[in-house]
Amino acid sequence: MAWPTKPSATMQVPRRAEPYVTDAMKAAWTKDVLPKYATKLGCLMPILHDVQHAYRHVPYQAQLEIAQFLGIAPSDVLDTVSFYDEFTVEQRGVVTIGVCHSIACEQCGCGSTKLIERVREKLGLLPGETTDDGQVTLITMDCLGSCDTAPVALFNETLHENLTPEAFDRLVEQAAHAKAGGHH
């Protein structure tokens, strides 16, 4: 969780000509999301998930477009985006490696500290950083709910359990060459 300083009112939002929120997305949300929540703001989280999933970030332009689609204030969108760890304004890599560093993963097996160290050695990444080619992002995560198979790490949406340094190395190697769009 973070409490970032809000961009000032005079901040220039970087823009591209092509909108992030496509007509197909709008149609899907109108059909699947809007009927499920009593307020427009309530629909925000499923929508943010879709945008984050599609672009690996929720840029300011997309936030403005979402606010317009829902008819809510852009600051409401920013408020929610900035609170939740899964929504990022900076683009994440093609593969995000999320190493769990909570108590069981730090204490059991080879330990999460060692896994994080391996990524630093191989890719030169510290937690929170993305490789220059935009391929891999390393983050540390809190308890992934798999303490019985510690240590664990998420590679995008796939959980890998009972990790050894060797198995983890192979996964990092694959991540460094994975193609965008494919699930790791």
Partner: peptide, 12 residues
């Protein structure tokens, strides 16, 4: 009706 609502990484 049952709606699946996914959170986004906040323990609180």
């Amino acid at each position: 009706d049952v709606v699946l609502h996914r959170s986004a990484g906040a323990y609180i």
